[in-house]
């Protein structure tokens, strides 16, 4: 039996792995974790995005506009079939009480991520986005299931 490794995905980074490994992010606030998965190969990745747009191509995964295109190219190199890849997106919260949630940086991140995924025809099969709570997540590459933890609601599975 293969040993199961866990990989932490830091802000502005993207990490690829395959079953039985696990990918995880901690303390996501307005950031968005884009989880991409090819169920036929049991391979996936998380990119941990901070901002909707940017132009620093040396650090593409900080930005939705650069990160998604780059991540999809890397998915192909990692042996994932792009026509089979789906996405689950998590994050984009607005943790401070007075900030207008409908116009905060979190929701703008989410909208930009959705725009780019749609452009590349990657279906979003589940999401847990927005709201007022920060999130931790664990992405199980054996099943494609993601456990999302918030201080308010505990664990949900998507």
């Amino acid at each position: 039996m293969n040993e199961r490794n866990t990989h932490y995905v830091k802000i502005g980074n993207a990490v690829w792995a395959k079953s039985p490994d696990v990918l995880y992010c901690k303390g996501l606030g307005s950031c968005v974790a884009v989880c991409l998965y090819d169920a036929s190969k049991k391979k996936g990745c998380i990119l941990h995005i901070l901002l909707p747009y940017g132009d620093d191509e040396s650090k593409p995964y900080f930005y939705a506009n650069l990160g998604i295109a780059k991540a999809l190219r890397e998915c192909q190199k990692f042996g994932m079939s792009i026509d089979k890849v789906w996405a689950k997106i998590i994050g984009g919260a607005c943790v401070f009480s007075r900030v207008d949630e409908s116009n905060g940086i979190g929701i703008r991140n989410v909208n930009e991520v959705k725009k780019w995924l749609k452009l590349y025809k990657i279906p979003i099969i589940a999401e847990d986005v927005g709201g007022k709570s920060g999130r931790n997540l664990i992405f199980n590459l054996e099943t494609g299931e993601i456990e999302v933890f918030t201080l308010q609601k505990g664990i949900i599975k998507i």
Partner: peptide, 23 residues
Amino acid sequence: DFAIDMKGAIFDFVLAEHKNESL
């Protein structure tokens, strides 16, 4: 503004709001 949440979630919101282009 006030928040009770995970430290990282609070901090990434603050940094994103700053739009720190130079990273």
